[in-house]
Structures are given as C-alpha cells and as structure tokens.
Simulated scan of single mutants.
Amino acid sequence: MKLKDMPRVLRPREKLVEKGVEYLSNAELLALLLRSGVVGTSVVELSRRIIKRYSPASLTHIGYDDLITVHGINQAKACTILAAFELSKRAAGLGSNALPEIQKSIDAAAQLTFIRNRKKEYFVVLYLNTRDQLMKREIISVGTLDSSLIHPREVFQPAIACNAARVILGHNHPSGDHTPSTADRSVTRRIVEAGKILGISVRDHIVISEHGYSSMADKDMLQ
C-alpha cells in the first residue's frame, strides 16, 4: 500500500504539513523515505518492522549489506535510507566517524556484516569505551578459529592501546551455520579469563553467517 492510498489522517506527509515534522514517529519519518510498502504490508508497517529490528542507537549505522536483507527493502530503498542518514549526520556535524553505541547484540552484529559472506573465517574484535561506544574494530586473524591460533595477547593489546573498557568478539562461519561450536566456546573462555586478569570484560561473542547470527551472551555461553 502506498502513502496516497492510506486514510488522510494516517498519512505521514499530511501529518507533517499540518502539525510539523517533530510530531512524526520514527516509523512515520522512515515511511516518507520509503514511499511505498510491499504486497500485503503498508509502508508504515514496513517502517515499524525496521525500527523494531534495530535499536535507535544503531539505526543510523546500518550497513547496506544488512539493510538489503530486510524483506521489502530493495536497492533503491536501501540507498535512500543510507543517504538520508549520512546527510543527517553531516548536517549535525558528526560526520561518518561518529561513534556508534553497541547496546544490544544486534548492534554488534551490524558491525560484523562485512565478514558474514567471507569464504574464510575472520576473527574480529570490537573495542568499546565506558559508554559502550565503538572506538575501534580490528581483524585479529583470518583462518580456522582455534585456541592455539587466537592468543589473548592479540585481542587485548589493541584494547590497552585505545584504553577500551570492554570488548566484543566476533567471527563468521562460512558454512552458513551460525551455531557456536565447541572450539568457539573454548576460545571464548580463554579470552574471558584473560580479560578478567586485565580488568577488561568480554561482553559478547557474535558468530555470524549469511543466514543470521548467534550471540553467546544472549545464550549465556560466555563462561
């Protein structure tokens, strides 16, 4: 359903003109950018799904590869959304280097979408400050994830250098199955224990693939 087909009282454009842009919800603002929904789903409902899927803090830091996976979002809609968010950041003087907040596991996963389709395993660490803002993202290793290959020193040296308060681990499964393996849990436990000694907590370990992601913190698998 397109905006013009909705009852006038529910149309975001008319609401903006009559009351002002500040009276529109996040979903209504997004609906104005999308302009149309998909078969069986109005543009406002599609916008609500996107808002529900991402936290407000991560919404302006969504990548193209992640956004295009949302049902109803094609290339044109994805580009429109990304362009609008980038323009708003520049207008606010924040620029593209504004520090995104990592509040939920989905926020962390959004920072790892660049490795989800890789043919080799990439082990990546996100370094956060005390406000859970992403300070640095670094690829630690490429290849099979193994406790003998991933040394805690390689994880925590950058953390100490940038004065990170906590870290989030992440790696991809080229097989497409994002279920944490026994090896994943072994590596995680070793790094968690090392972090306790250094006073730098491991907040999560995200396993991502082309079919989705798993959060070891959400599954209570960090210990």
Rank of each mutant, 00 (worst) to 15 (best):
13 R>W: 02
212 G>L: 15
119 K>V: 05
55 S>W: 05
218 D>V: 14
201 S>H: 12
180 P>T: 07
13 R>F: 00
51 I>G: 13
6 M>F: 04
12 P>A: 03
218 D>R: 08
17 V>G: 02
135 M>S: 13
220 D>N: 06
200 I>V: 15
155 V>P: 10
167 V>L: 09
193 E>H: 06
101 E>H: 11
142 V>I: 09
78 A>V: 04
25 S>M: 08
219 K>Q: 04
105 S>C: 14
141 S>G: 14
204 D>F: 03
138 E>M: 13
199 G>N: 12
153 R>C: 14
209 S>D: 01
105 S>W: 06
66 D>G: 12
88 S>V: 02
69 T>E: 12
138 E>P: 12
190 R>G: 10
12 P>E: 11
144 T>E: 07
166 R>G: 13
141 S>Y: 15
198 L>H: 12
37 G>W: 01
100 P>T: 08
158 P>R: 07
13 R>K: 02
141 S>Q: 10
126 L>R: 06
106 I>G: 14
80 T>K: 03
147 S>T: 11
182 T>H: 03
26 N>F: 05
113 T>K: 06
23 Y>D: 04
185 R>E: 12
149 L>T: 06
179 T>Q: 05
65 D>Y: 13
102 I>Y: 05
184 D>H: 14
72 G>P: 01
151 H>R: 07
223 Q>V: 08
40 G>K: 09
36 S>Q: 06
57 A>D: 15
31 A>V: 03
113 T>C: 14
219 K>F: 14
93 G>I: 02
81 I>H: 06
78 A>H: 04
